[in-house]
Computed example of a mutant assay.
Amino acid sequence: MLDTRKFRTEQLRAPVPLVALLAGLVALFGFGINFGEAVIGRTATAPHDHGRNGIGEDDDHGKAPGGLAIASRGYLLRPRTTRFTAGEFENFRFTVYSSNGRPVTDFAERGDQRMDFFVVRRDITGYQHLYPVMDADGTWTVPLELAEPGSYRAFAEFLPGTATTPVTLGVDLEAPGLVEDGPISKVSTIAELDGYTVVWTGDLVAGSVSRIGMHVMRDELPVTDLDPILGSAGHLVILREGDLAHLNVRPVAGPRQDTAIDFEADVPTAGYYRMFLEFQHHGQLQTVEFTALAR
């Protein structure tokens, strides 16, 4: 007699190749979702919605270091080119896109600028702070010279729309040629340049908000009449050695105390950091550098 139960069971079984095909499609679909989220970020509604660009922002993001990725918090930095000839000026052009695929043109001003752009070589030499100009279509342009061959990192920091904390994106630039790495910097608290002496005080404490004081002196006297830069008496950039993570640094609000330019910095980890302080006096812009150790 024919065993109909066995026959029915075998009919319900899907062929092995079909099962494998379905499993592969599910895995591929999952990879596509994860890849999209990694590049552009999630587009689902976030706790805070800031309107016209369709971007949500989590306040905790402002405390994490930036510049480690080309895309973050729903924004994407897209350069026109990343290859330069060492020692030659070329126009560097880039656009910031939102998660809806459109160029961002709504940037809040900080000081008198809407885009904070700076470049440094991977060995933390050749620091440049530049001010690009935006076209009507959202394309930013800035003349850029990579003086020496090597790999560089470009940072774009901006405050989109009605966001309350800046977004910092980063992209690698290349200037082919024979690379000579700069010397390993030592921990320093004093810098001298063009008759100015700058001393920084405070401590970088890993996992905390650290307070930093910058004291600018000339002829052994405090300089108290500095010109404003981006709405403050000075501009401070802090990068972590190794991966060039850009720390969230902000000037302390209120009048200056003890002639110091005070800043607060979110220090994520222990390690060595490079600090670049810019100040302007009687129309002359100066940039001094320090190396600090966070414990």
Rank of each mutant, 00 (worst) to 15 (best):
A270Q: 13
M1Y: 09
V198N: 06
L18V: 13
V216H: 08
R211S: 10
R52V: 08
D181N: 11
G231N: 06
V167E: 00
R80H: 12
R73D: 15
H50A: 07
R93Q: 15
L239V: 07
D58T: 07
E289F: 06
Q113C: 01
M115V: 06
R114C: 03
G182D: 05
E264C: 02
M115L: 15
H246V: 08
T85Y: 00
R218L: 04
M214Y: 07
L146I: 09
G177P: 01
F276W: 13
V199I: 13
P228N: 04
P166G: 03
R102V: 04
V119A: 03
I33M: 07
T82Q: 07
A64E: 12
F107Q: 00
P132V: 01
Y273G: 05
T125Q: 14
M115C: 11
I33L: 15
G36T: 10
P79F: 01
G138A: 06
K63W: 15
V142K: 02
L144A: 04
E241P: 02
N34H: 07
G177I: 07
D116F: 07
L130T: 07
V216L: 12
L293P: 01
N100K: 06
K186W: 08
P160K: 00
Y75V: 01
R93A: 12
P183V: 10
T4D: 05
V120Y: 03
T259Q: 15
Y97H: 03
N53E: 14
A86H: 06
G126A: 08
A64S: 06
A294S: 15
E57Y: 14
A27G: 09
M217E: 12
L293N: 12
T197W: 02
L173H: 02
E10Y: 12
T168D: 02
E157Q: 15
A294L: 08
G101A: 03
R110K: 07
G51H: 13
F107S: 01
M275D: 08
T43V: 05
D135A: 15
T162L: 08
L193D: 09
M217S: 09
P176D: 10
I124Q: 15
T224K: 05
D123Y: 05
F118N: 09
